[in-house]
Structure formats: C-alpha cells, structure tokens
C-alpha cells in the first residue's frame, strides 16, 4: 500500500512549499500521486495556485475548485475521506497553526488505518512563534491535540527566503535539532534550495532535501 504523508506547522513555516516539492519528487517515481490542499484558512499563496504545474507532472490536486478556490469560508473537498481509504501515494498540506490542523482531527482515524503514514511538523526557526523551545512545544502540543495524531518527524526548513545563506541554514538547523531532541521527535529532512546543496552536503548528507520555490511570485 502506498504511503500517506501529512505536513503541519505554524503559519508560514513553509508547509505548502515542502508539500508541493514532496509531491513533485514522489511523482517522478510513482504514478497516481495525490496532493490534498486542505488550507481552509486562507487561499493566499496556497498550492492550488500551481494547479497547472501539478497536473502536468501527473499529480492529482484535491483542493477547492473554481470560485471556491478564492473563498474564505472553510471548505473541504468531498472526496477526501474516500481517497485516504484507497491505496495511493497521498500528500496532505494543512493550513497553519491549530486552526489549520483541526481538519486532521476529522480525518486522522482514516490516516492511522493505513499501513504506513508520516505526520511531519514543519519548522522554520526564523518565523515568529517558532524561535524558542517553549513556543515550539506549545505549537506541537496544540497541533497534536487538534489533529489527534502524534508527529512522526520534523522537517527542518530554516530560511529567510531571498536572504538565506549556508550559515543561516546551519544556525537555524542547529536550533531545530535542539528542539527535536527536547520534543523527542526525529529530524527527518533539512529542506534547502538547490544552490546550497553542494556546500551543505558534506555536513548533512542524505538529510538534505532540495526544494524549488513554486509559490513565490515572479515579481518578488
């Protein structure tokens, strides 16, 4: 049976970019990858913005469609439960904070019924409310509480967008490793842009996961 991977985190932690990239990379190896955009909090900068690119890669995007994609009323695609119960490669992108993860509380019993699943906490220590252990513990507790699911791994996503540097990644990742130890959750990936790969590979090796920024507008 295929895997199901769920990404949660604080607002603006990079969940959507990480989920998009995960789905794109998965689609290179397997057919029938599904990306569910369950960001029902706010449709600005959501994975549905790149629907065409995903479809070209053979990924089925499950997200509010047409006019609803601009709605700020919570709407969950009706087929989501059916899809989770089928055998497929599925990636779920939740909205930020506990208000975003609350939708998983409704779906988690179907997620745990699958043979394997991953529930990742995406952290960027350069974001507000993710800069100290106390805040991160509170975030973890709240997300797991509403989702009714325990995290299986942390995605370390330290960045300042265009002002990211290798040293900034190293410093940020070190903070996240500290948080991860205290939370007793393994760091599964360190996500970076391709341009930093060769410099960081000697130190982090297979932990590195290269991501492209799909949601960044071209005028930025």
């Amino acid at each position: 049976m295929g895997n199901i991977v769920v990404f949660a985190g604080g607002f603006g932690s990079g969940k959507s970019e990480v989920a998009l990239n995960y789905a794109m990379q998965k689609a290179e190896a397997s057919k029938g990858v599904i990306l569910a955009d369950l960001d029902l909090v706010n449709p600005y900068f959501a994975s549905r913005d790149v629907r065409a690119k995903l479809e070209k890669a053979g990924i089925r995007l499950v997200a509010p469609e047409g006019q609803l994609s601009f709605g700020d009323v919570p709407s969950i695609p009706g087929e989501i439960i059916g899809l989770i119960r089928q055998d497929n490669e599925m990636v779920i992108d939740l909205a930020g904070d506990e208000v975003g993860s609350v939708v998983l509380g409704y779906l988690s019993r179907y997620v745990v019924a699958r043979e394997t699943y991953d529930f990742f906490l995406v952290l960027n220590p350069y974001r507000p409310f993710a800069q100290d252990l106390e805040s991160v513990m509170l975030l973890k507790r709240r997300l797991e509480g509403v989702a009714n699911l325990k995290f299986t791994g942390i995605v370390s996503n330290p960045n300042l967008l265009g002002e990211t540097s290798p040293d900034l990644i190293r410093d940020g990742h070190e903070m996240i490793v500290g948080f991860a130890e205290a939370l007793d959750i393994p760091v599964s990936y360190l996500t970076i842009e391709e341009k930093f790969y060769s410099e960081l590979f000697p130190d982090y090796g297979e932990k590195l996961q290269v991501i492209d920024l799909y949601l960044k507008p071209d005028w930025l």
């Binding site: 603006g12 960027n124 350069y126 974001r127 507000p128 800069q131 960045n159 967008l161 002002e163």
Partner: peptide, 14 residues
C-alpha cells in the same frame, strides 16, 4: 536579528 514575517505580522509587531 532578522525575522521572516508576513506583512500582517510585521504591522502588528511595528
């Protein structure tokens, strides 16, 4: 130290 902020967060922080 720089912080990665949303515009709305920055206005509130300001």
């Amino acid at each position: 130290k720089k912080v990665l902020m949303k515009g709305n967060e920055a206005i509130a922080e300001g």
